[in-house]
Simulated assay, not measured.
Amino acid sequence: MTSGITNAQLQQIIEEVERMKKEEQSTLSREEVKQVLEELNLPADLVDEAIVRVNQRLDQDSYEKNLRRIYWIAGTIVLATIAAVFFGFQQRQAKMSQVTAAQDRLTLTQDDGSNLTVVNRQQSPEVVYRVTLAQAPVGDRLTLSCNWTDPTGVIVKQNRYETKQITTPVWNTYCRMPLGSGTTAGTWTVEMFLGDRPLESAQFQVQ
């Protein structure tokens, strides 16, 4: 029995097979392998070993190529996803930056259309800051907040909320602050924010 195929001979066989076939093959026929062995002046009784070892090498090469292809596809998908998320974030930020306050008013709980500048803490249980937004992003929700600052500069009340899904570019929203006998008299300030960005503010007197 002739000794087995060396690694150098195996490489020669593979190169000859690739030259003959001009494309990747997953299996080889006995006649094809015998022809390769004859061209390389190798014993014909090595045909069975050659078939096994060449197919193993081709299978390994095919696996590695497929694995590289899978990594490439997965990497492309990940990059595309990141790009889409970043693009969506940029679009949303652009929409948010366009939102402005078109009008603001201070009213009591029952809105009679007025804009209060003075509120009596003994007679009014609550004051409401009503803001009309312009260029609101239709289909989105907005995260809004209000700070109510007393005459000493202390934020006494904070409202944080998310709007309903916006259905029109002109959107009315509001925030509230309760009043009572313990409410400090003097000039108060209320300010509305979109995220961290100030939208509008107003001052009023509490008596």
Score class of each variant (00 low, 15 high):
40 L>T: 04
101 A>M: 08
134 A>T: 12
85 V>Q: 11
105 R>G: 03
88 G>N: 15
133 L>Q: 11
101 A>E: 12
105 R>D: 04
31 E>L: 05
61 D>M: 15
91 Q>E: 13
144 L>E: 11
33 V>A: 03
71 Y>P: 02
41 N>D: 14
149 T>W: 06
77 I>F: 01
83 A>T: 14
148 W>P: 05
107 T>D: 08
124 S>I: 03
24 E>F: 10
70 I>W: 01
54 V>D: 11
133 L>P: 11
107 T>C: 07
52 V>S: 12
80 A>P: 02
116 L>Q: 03
30 R>D: 03
25 Q>D: 00
117 T>R: 12
120 N>M: 01
122 Q>E: 06
93 Q>V: 06
120 N>D: 15
76 T>D: 01
73 I>K: 09
49 E>M: 07
123 Q>V: 03
125 P>E: 05
85 V>R: 07
59 D>E: 14
35 Q>W: 00
136 A>H: 09
54 V>K: 09
140 D>V: 04
73 I>T: 10
72 W>F: 05
105 R>W: 10
51 I>M: 15
94 A>M: 11
74 A>K: 04
74 A>Y: 05
141 R>I: 06
78 V>A: 12
126 E>P: 00
94 A>S: 15
80 A>T: 13
108 L>F: 06
40 L>S: 01
53 R>F: 11
99 V>T: 10
87 F>H: 10
144 L>R: 10
122 Q>S: 04
111 D>N: 12
98 Q>K: 15
139 G>E: 09
137 P>N: 09
110 Q>V: 14
67 L>T: 09
92 R>K: 14
43 P>S: 03
140 D>H: 11
